[in-house]
């Protein structure tokens, strides 16, 4: 121990500073790895908290789209709660009126942006549904129907892909 302590001392008696080079190497690699995870192909969908997505063998990359999350009969649009379905059914048939209103607003806004960019000809509204694995088809069907009625015909179901 004494010998080692003596080794760390310089000839002039001053203590050698902590060498941070190797730690810097690790941090640099970690930083690059984390930055790389943001620059993946396609769009990254973050699961909405509270939604337990089902697992699937699908490997299709998600595209930039509006996200509807469904869990415990609660419907959220882009992270904001829209409505709560009572027992998954209503007198309005399959249409979920509050969701339809919000989707129409979103579509109008997206169309306006596409027009400003001059991309309105190619504009096709896309939607990704993040459904909890335990929701019933009854709820899913109503959400899909409402999306379709609001002009979001290009529907994708978000799942946890095979890694």
């Amino acid at each position: 121990m004494a010998r080692r302590r003596r080794k760390n001392r310089r000839k002039d008696g001053t203590t050698a500073p902590l060498r941070l080079t190797s730690m810097m190497d690790i941090l640099t690699v970690l930083l690059l790895f984390l930055l790389k995870s943001f620059v993946v192909e396609g769009e990254v969908i973050t699961p909405v908290p509270g939604v337990d997505l089902p697992e699937s063998s699908s490997d299709a990359a998600p595209q930039a789209s509006v996200v509807v999350a469904i869990f415990d009969n609660t419907v959220m649009l882009d992270g904001q709660m829209v409505t709560r379905l009572e027992n998954g059914s209503s007198d309005d048939g399959l249409l979920i009126a509050p969701l339809a209103d919000r989707l129409n607003q979103t579509r109008a806004k997206e169309l306006e942006i596409a027009q400003l960019r001059g991309e309105d000809v190619d504009y096709s509204p896309k939607i990704a549904i993040q459904g909890d694995r335990d929701i019933s088809f009854e709820v899913l069907e109503r959400v899909m129907y409402t999306c379709n009625q609001s002009g979001f015909g290009d529907i994708a179901l978000a799942v946890i892909g095979a890694s």
């Binding site: 941070l20 930083l31 995870s37 973050t46 994708a156 978000a158 095979a162 890694s163």
Partner: peptide
């Protein structure tokens, strides 16, 4: 080092480790 120590936790928090994919639906 200070910059890295601030950046790395921030990136770790926002990093997505779950591989979310999609299944395209047809009408």
């Amino acid at each position: 080092m200070n910059l890295f120590v601030a950046l790395i936790p921030m990136l770790l928090i926002s990093a997505v480790f779950l591989n979310v994919t999609v299944i395209e639906m047809n009408a």
